[in-house]
């Protein structure tokens, strides 16, 4: 028996060099993890801030004078802006809707349609967005600069709780004032709509209002008002949080103001979406 030796060639498959990709992937993972960490850290800090503010809100030593001053500041600062926006909002909505309704011969529906859209959606959201820009940035910048120039520390060492004096008063003032500003903007929006209706026609104010409120009922009104309290609280909380936790240097003041506006505006839209869904489910 002859044994034939067949030479066996070992075939070693050439594997692609994955090390580069692995390194790239791990770098990317690390970056993403860091981003996620930063997000969770920020969220954690915000909830701690919220907890602290809530605890101080129920404190016996409420800074009522500062609360009234903040209410006045918020109302006084935004009133001209809200007035113009509210008026134009109603006017534009009417001018834009009129031709479409005229095509269907439904011009008489105009007051009701405009009033409904202003009260339910346009008034609260547009007013809240304007307030997010005006009040949110103001709070972020004011508290941020107070933080940078050690004024918050000075308050703390002079035995005054800055959370109670600066944060609680501003958040509560925004929570109370924004619904009032929304109602005011709604009223001006309807007035603007009446003015718009009179550009190409003639309708008395009494007729316009009676036609408008034939469509709108209390349940259109209530959820819209309730959500504005949440808008106000959110704008106040985000504005004060961003300012209160600003870093060092003047650059951080700008960053605090900017991120307060962006974050508050985004949250207003998200809360609106949730409010609409909840209202839709309940009614």
């Amino acid at each position: 028996m002859v044994k034939i030796r067949v030479p066996v060639k070992k075939i070693i498959p050439k594997l692609p060099d994955l090390s580069k990709h692995v390194i790239k992937l791990s770098e990317k993972t690390l970056k993403e993890t860091q981003k996620a960490n930063a997000f969770f850290l920020e969220a954690g800090n915000f909830f701690l801030f919220l907890f602290s503010a809530t605890r101080e809100a129920f404190s016996r030593q409420f800074e009522f004078k500062e609360f009234l001053r903040q209410c006045y500041q918020i109302g006084n600062k935004t009133l001209p802006l809200i007035s113009v926006t509210g008026l134009i909002m109603g006017l534009v909505l009417t001018i834009q809707s009129r031709p479409v309704l005229a095509d269907f011969g439904a011009v008489s529906m105009l007051p009701g349609m405009v009033a409904l859209s202003i009260i339910r959606e346009m008034g609260p959201v547009i007013t809240a967005l304007i307030c997010a820009g005006k009040i949110g940035s103001g709070m972020g910048a004011e508290l941020g600069s107070m933080k940078v120039t050690e004024q918050i520390d000075a308050m703390e060492v002079s035995a005054t709780n800055p959370m109670r004096f600066l944060v609680v008063t501003r958040v509560l003032a925004a929570t109370l004032m924004i619904p009032i500003l929304v109602l005011y903007a709604d009223a001006l929006g309807i007035m603007g709509s009446w003015a718009g209706a009179n550009i190409k026609g003639s309708v008395s104010f009494t007729l316009f209002i009676s036609q408008a409120f034939r469509v709108v009922d209390f349940m259109d009104f209530l959820p819209a008002v309730i959500k504005t309290f949440f808008f106000g609280a959110t704008i106040g909380l985000i504005g004060t949080y961003k300012g209160y936790t600003a870093g060092k240097g003047t650059e951080s003041v700008g960053r605090a103001a900017n991120s307060a506006v962006v974050m508050a505006s985004l949250l207003v839209i998200i809360i609106d979406l949730i409010a609409v869904q909840v209202t839709d489910m309940l009614l």
Binding site: E142, S145, M146, Q151, D153, A154, E156, V157, S158, A159
Partner: peptide, 28 residues
């Protein structure tokens, strides 16, 4: 209560910008 007994002069002064000098002094 302890901080009431301590005075702290900050490097930047840390006067409250939105208040007059009188209001700054009234505050503590």
């Amino acid at each position: 209560a302890m901080r009431e007994k301590i005075g702290f002069l900050f490097q930047s002064g840390a006067l409250y910008d939105s208040m007059t000098i009188k209001q700054n002094l009234e505050f503590p």
